[in-house]
């Protein structure tokens, strides 16, 4: 697909900035328009235009009309509060933002593909789970956490948009937790902390995604959009205990009942604030089937052990 003009929401975040830079180097891309409510920290390449605007306002339809993109990358999904965003704002950005963006796409006929950065957290983490989630399993899950509910709503809007517009290819990229040297999230801080707060008596199966591979996966979806959800994660699944031994990182086993209190105190120096998604993830873990990613998008992320090292 000749993806001539691309619009990226959430330009200022890690994926927005990196994806814009990668697409600016792509001869198949004519222009990149980045939308965000705050300015990106780094200077942008020449073919990238930054437009300041709040996704939640109906005015973004004017930005979309002016930009007339063929591909819209909805990358404004926020997992963690902080940086001046309350958890209420995070919910608004994820749900209302998606709703407004898709409503705006309704009236822009140039849009041929919508690529959404979402999360494999939509599957949750529970004791009786499938060992490997395939893309069709998200709808059968009951939402346990706030973020999981946000994701379910967000994906629901994308699915109904896809039904309304059969000619538009909608791709939902479900990222496993992303780690890497430059990304700064509570997840990367947890995996960088000098001691790892584990849950006593549990050894979850973990599958991670390297930050560079996460950007490559988005870029691949922009180049060749596929219909529906795509799981994005490393090719392997490792037990947390094995990962920590490999990293030579001591684990501090904390009973589940007092996990949030003790782990919160333990991680305070690193600045990582844990959310309610962490305890189930660190008890039961989560692994996804990545066949669609490798076979249809041709992306081969590095193994979990290499990603986290």
């Amino acid at each position: 697909m000749a993806s001539r003009r691309v619009l990226i929401t959430g330009l200022a975040n890690f994926w927005g900035t990196r994806l814009a830079a990668q697409l600016a180097d792509d001869p198949g891309v004519e222009h990149v328009v980045g939308l965000d409510d705050r300015a990106p920290a780094a200077a942008l390449p020449g073919r990238v235009t930054f437009v300041e605007g709040d996704l939640r306002s109906p005015d973004i339809v004017h930005v979309l009309r002016a930009a007339a993109p063929q591909v819209v990358v909805h990358n404004a999904m926020v997992q963690f509060a902080g940086e001046g965003r309350s958890s209420r704002t995070v919910h608004d950005l994820n749900v209302v933002g998606t709703l407004q963006l898709l409503a705006a796409c309704d009236s822009v006929p140039t849009v041929k593909a919508v690529v959404v950065r979402a999360s494999a957290a939509i599957y949750g983490s529970a004791p009786g789970d499938p060992a490997f989630f395939t893309e069709d399993m998200a709808s059968t899950r009951s939402s346990q956490t706030r973020f999981q509910r946000d994701l379910a709503e967000l994906e629901g809007y994308v699915a109904s948009f896809a039904r309304r517009h059969p000619a538009v290819t909608c791709t939902v990229m479900r990222f496993q937790p992303v780690v890497g040297p430059t990304l700064d999230t509570p997840i990367t801080r947890l995996f960088r902390a000098p001691v790892f707060p584990a849950v006593l008596g549990f050894d979850p199966r973990i599958q991670l995604l390297h930050e560079d591979d996460s950007v490559d996966a988005l870029a691949a979806a922009v180049r060749t959009p596929v219909k529906g959800a795509v799981n994005v994660g490393g090719p392997d699944v490792v037990a947390l205990s094995r990962m920590l031994r490999h990293l030579r990182r001591p684990a501090v086993p904390i009973p589940h009942a007092i996990y949030m209190t003790v782990a919160g105190a333990l991680l305070r120096p690193t600045g990582a604030r844990l959310t309610e998604d962490f305890p189930p993830f660190l008890r039961h873990g989560r692994a996804v089937d990545t066949r669609r990613l490798t076979e249809e998008l041709g992306v081969h992320p590095r193994p979990t052990m290499e990603a986290v090292a």
Partner: peptide
């Protein structure tokens, strides 16, 4: 599946080759 919500037992069960009795598994 209830086995996998019990501390320690879940680790032992997984190591021995047990998986939650889910059709998908």
């Amino acid at each position: 599946p209830r086995v996998f919500s019990l501390p320690f037992l879940t680790v032992a069960a997984r190591r021995l080759g047990a998986v939650p009795a889910h059709d998908a598994n």
